[in-house]
Computed example of a mutant assay.
Amino acid sequence: MPNLSAAPDSTVRRLLIVDDDVDFAVSTSRALGLAGVDCTLVHSGAGALDQLARDPVEVVLLDIRLGGEDGTDLAARLRARHPDLIVIIMTAYASVDSAVAALKAGAYDYLRKPFFLDELVQALDRCFQLAQLRRDKARAERQLALLHQIEAASQLAAGLSHDFKNMLAVIGANLMVIDDGLHAHDVLKPYATDAREAALTAADLVARLMGFARGEGPPGAVIDLGAVVGNVAAMLTRTLCQGMALDLDLPAAPLLVPADPRQVETALLNLLINARDATGGRGRVAIRLSRVWRGGPYARLEVVDDGPGLTPEGLERALEPLFTTKPEGTGLGLPMIQQMALRHGGRFRIGNAGGGDAMGGDGARGARAVLDLPCLGGDEAPDPGLDQGSGENM
């Protein structure tokens, strides 16, 4: 039995067969099923239009004669409704005119019955490869548009940060004068001190935002990522995530990463606050830190919640700057994590948890964020016990 070449992203290859010869359609679908193609059968033009409206596919195998219907006319109608549809027309009455008519109707390929299964498989292989190329092109265009949005957001952040920095400098200077001028036992002293410290914290946040806008590279500091993650989780357990269950899975040995600890803290803080908001502050979050191999040693930080997960729009636009599903959200948290990962030579992605293995329960769902950062530990080949980072589908 011939085999179709493996799909680059392991996408299931689905085919709609439109043929009024039921025996031929059934036997062909069975043979293609053994070759890894999931086939759906219809036996009329109306059936094809209805099936594609309910369950779109990318490739159609269409007979040129369907009882009293003209397959070339049907191909043109299908392509009019589904412009990206890839159609192979087959016929037992091959002629130059019918081949030209098929191509004019938008058919991608043309087969003469009877044909060998190998011939059909090769034609379908070309069709599925074209479909994959189109998906790759669309993905690249979305990523390019995202980069343009990040650039625009960075320019906006730079301008706003500069103005806020100037205003905070005035506020901080005045608070310093007030704080230093108050007696130690003055009833207003604690309030002035708190306001002064808050202004300093705000100035630090603005500095981080300006770093995001300028695309500054990571400093030369090396941190124990496990210690940073543990400290942030402990702090949030006592404060913002007080009503949640945080399940920590950290390695016993230090996991050394060349990174800015403040940026890592901010990234984890954003992810945990998102998890808190998604679960209403009463959910369960698994935080796992491990060492994986992606052509070199990487530290992988996973944050998985048991909330409702991301909507299709959320999955598509989660990393777009200024996109948010929260009434008072800024839409900059996740894009800043992504940019931080890229500047450190890492990778960040977010999706739905699915089956729930990461949460330790059957059927658990929710959002899953994965941050990979290069870590120290040698460039030797991984040992059998090291997670090699396979199986990622985000």
Score class of each variant (00 low, 15 high):
residue 277 D to L: 15
residue 230 G to A: 05
residue 373 L to F: 08
residue 357 D to N: 10
residue 50 D to Q: 14
residue 279 T to A: 01
residue 314 G to W: 08
residue 348 F to Q: 03
residue 169 A to Y: 06
residue 374 P to G: 00
residue 346 G to W: 07
residue 288 R to K: 09
residue 21 D to G: 05
residue 82 H to C: 01
residue 231 N to R: 15
residue 55 D to H: 15
residue 14 R to W: 06
residue 350 I to H: 09
residue 358 A to K: 09
residue 124 L to I: 11
residue 284 R to M: 07
residue 54 R to W: 07
residue 48 A to R: 06
residue 150 I to Q: 06
residue 380 E to F: 10
residue 43 H to I: 01
residue 159 G to N: 08
residue 70 D to W: 08
residue 157 A to C: 04
residue 257 V to M: 02
residue 275 A to L: 12
residue 96 V to D: 00
residue 367 A to C: 13
residue 343 R to K: 14
residue 333 G to D: 02
residue 177 V to W: 06
residue 54 R to E: 11
residue 197 E to Q: 15
residue 76 A to C: 13
residue 184 A to F: 12
residue 109 D to V: 11
residue 165 K to Q: 13
residue 187 V to R: 02
residue 367 A to K: 05
residue 109 D to S: 01
residue 155 Q to M: 14
residue 242 Q to C: 08
residue 309 G to S: 08
residue 168 L to K: 04
residue 70 D to T: 07
residue 266 T to M: 11
residue 249 D to L: 05
residue 22 V to I: 03
residue 345 G to S: 04
residue 79 R to K: 15
residue 176 M to S: 10
residue 117 L to E: 04
residue 198 A to G: 08
residue 274 N to Q: 12
residue 127 C to H: 06
residue 102 A to M: 04
residue 281 G to L: 14
residue 381 A to Y: 02
residue 137 K to I: 15
residue 92 A to W: 06
residue 23 D to F: 09
residue 90 M to S: 01
residue 12 V to Y: 04
residue 377 G to M: 13
residue 60 V to S: 03
residue 186 D to V: 07
residue 318 A to W: 05
residue 239 T to G: 14
residue 33 G to T: 10
residue 264 V to D: 00
residue 35 A to F: 02
residue 65 R to P: 00
residue 287 I to H: 02
residue 370 V to C: 06
residue 91 T to H: 01
residue 190 P to V: 01
residue 50 D to S: 13
residue 213 A to W: 01
residue 316 E to D: 12
residue 260 D to T: 14
residue 392 E to H: 03
residue 286 A to M: 06
residue 380 E to K: 12
residue 54 R to P: 09
residue 152 A to W: 09
residue 319 L to H: 08
residue 272 L to Y: 10
residue 321 P to H: 02
residue 18 V to R: 01
residue 188 L to T: 13
residue 304 V to C: 00
residue 4 L to I: 03
residue 164 F to M: 05
residue 160 L to V: 01
residue 32 L to N: 08
residue 194 D to M: 12
residue 108 Y to L: 12
residue 212 F to N: 00
residue 96 V to L: 01
residue 66 L to K: 07
residue 374 P to H: 03
residue 371 L to I: 11
residue 359 M to Y: 06
residue 292 V to T: 13
residue 330 T to V: 03
residue 282 R to C: 11
residue 89 I to K: 05
residue 30 R to Q: 15
residue 17 I to L: 13
residue 353 A to W: 02
residue 336 M to P: 05
residue 36 G to T: 04
residue 180 D to W: 08
residue 62 L to N: 00
residue 13 R to C: 01
residue 301 L to D: 00
residue 38 D to Y: 14
residue 352 N to R: 10
residue 165 K to Y: 03
residue 267 A to G: 10
residue 227 A to E: 04
residue 25 A to G: 11
residue 103 L to N: 08
residue 366 G to N: 05
residue 231 N to K: 14
residue 245 A to G: 07
residue 197 E to C: 13
residue 314 G to D: 07
residue 81 R to K: 15
residue 374 P to F: 05
residue 370 V to W: 02
residue 23 D to K: 10
residue 51 Q to R: 15
residue 216 E to S: 02
residue 129 Q to E: 13
residue 53 A to K: 12
residue 5 S to K: 15
residue 341 A to Y: 11
residue 205 L to D: 12
residue 233 A to S: 14
residue 134 R to V: 10
residue 131 A to T: 05
residue 203 A to N: 14
residue 53 A to C: 12
residue 264 V to N: 00
residue 91 T to K: 10
residue 389 G to I: 11
